[in-house]
Design a binder for these strands. Sequence first.
DNA 1: ATTAATGCAAACGGTTTGCACTACT
DNA 2: AGTAGTGCAAACCGTTTGCATTAAT
Lengths: 145, 145
Amino acid sequence: MTADRWTDVRRRLRSRGLRWTPQRRIVLEVLDDLDGHVTGAELVESCRAVDPATTPSTVYRTLDVLEELGIVAHSHGREGREEYHVRPAANHGHLRCTACGTTWDLSEPEVRGLAAGLFGRRRFEVALEHLTVEGRCAACRIVDA
Amino acid sequence: MTADRWTDVRRRLRSRGLRWTPQRRIVLEVLDDLDGHVTGAELVESCRAVDPATTPSTVYRTLDVLEELGIVAHSHGREGREEYHVRPAANHGHLRCTACGTTWDLSEPEVRGLAAGLFGRRRFEVALEHLTVEGRCAACRIVDA
DNA sequence: ATTAATGCAAACGGTTTGCACTACT
DNA sequence: AGTAGTGCAAACCGTTTGCATTAAT
């Protein structure tokens, strides 16, 4: 059990000659807390709550490097904007209700049929981490009659 | 067989007290020619080829009204940008190769399994017209070894 | 004649960039 | 000491808005 959740990240940065800075730590911690589905602008906002001096450029640049290292990933969010999240052990897609905006994770088994079909018929390899399925959730279907 | 492909659109606009203008006609014709998957900015560009006087505001406002009438629809495109297309008779999703950018239509039967599963398990109703599945196509999978 | 639609120019919001300065290593 | 990273301010791009003018009905 390590004292710091991010020691591994720090090591990966260093091994590439990159650096572990307070700003990067804040971005990563905030992003992790938010538990995914956050746009760049929202992340800037949330980071300011922790450190009011947070700058957009730093946040976006941090997202870039962390994404390059595979620590952060993005998926397609509402209004066609990118949404970032700390990359989980297993890839997953997203299910979003267009009415209430709630999102759920979509696990590999749930998409296996679709992926298998597309691969079989078209030799197309689905990128689960970029899959966002939109529609209306159970609750909203009831509300809207 | 009508002389003009858009007489019906014209009628639908008029019935709501809206108007059929040369600009709207250009937007619709160009959008139809481009056969879907066009961002707003690209559409402005293409319209300028037909009429150099084309203005962004007019194009975007036209997309809004035509979408409200159900004549135009948008889906999630590359870089998380919205892509517009003239709405076809049958709803369809999209399949995009992230490597070469090519997109294919995804018909209802191809997604039926996924939709049925999500509805059965989660009572979630998939909006096919907003579904974009990303991944790598057969050709790009071969190229990348 | 009425009023919807246009064109312009300006504003907007999110993101990116150049550059001098700071600070991790 | 060396160089990656920061912060600022300005640029950028796609999109939206207010307003006076034009034109479809």
